[in-house]
């Protein structure tokens, strides 16, 4: 049974969903850890605090792997500086961290018809959920 964490980086925050199980039988892991941001991305102490907090969360939970929804690097819908900083900090984890393309997510969800409203998730967590599901 896999334990995974899906992350959607939006603005200056990483939105998080943790899942346990397999694609046909899974559960959302209840946690207060729903999102985390960097208070001041230019301040070294704030950046270190973000890294320590999120890596500590991964270690506490014992995830098998982490999935981050891929942001475009160019174009009008590309991720900003802070987005890629957050992504880099997460990748310093000792765990396997995958950058998951949206096409991969779509293909994993195809035909599954998952009703997200039945889970105890906020709407802003839906993309993180889909990312987590894609790496189960």
């Amino acid at each position: 049974m896999a334990k995974v964490c899906g992350i959607d980086i939006s603005g200056s925050e990483a939105v998080i969903v943790a899942l346990e199980g397999g694609p046909d039988n899974f559960s959302v892991i209840k946690t207060d850890f729903k999102k985390i941001g960097i208070n001041d991305y230019k301040n070294q102490a704030d950046v270190q605090s973000f890294r320590d907090t999120i890596i500590g969360f991964f270690n506490n939970m014992g995830f098998d792997r982490i999935g981050i929804k891929e942001r475009n690097s160019t174009g009008t819908r590309s991720g900003g500086t802070i987005t890629f900083k957050i992504e880099g900090l997460i990748q310093t984890s000792e765990l396997e961290v995958k950058i998951v393309h949206h096409a991969t997510i779509r293909s994993k969800l195809r035909g599954k018809n998952i009703d997200l409203s039945k889970f105890d998730l906020n709407k802003y967590q839906y993309e993180a959920f889909e990312t987590a599901f894609s790496i189960l």
């Binding site: 850890f33 605090s49 907090t53 500590g56 969360f57 506490n60 939970m61």
Partner: peptide, 11 residues
């Protein structure tokens, strides 16, 4: 429920 949740609140 965990030290990491406490840590998040301080962050």
């Amino acid at each position: 429920s965990s030290a990491s949740e406490f840590r998040l609140k301080l962050h």
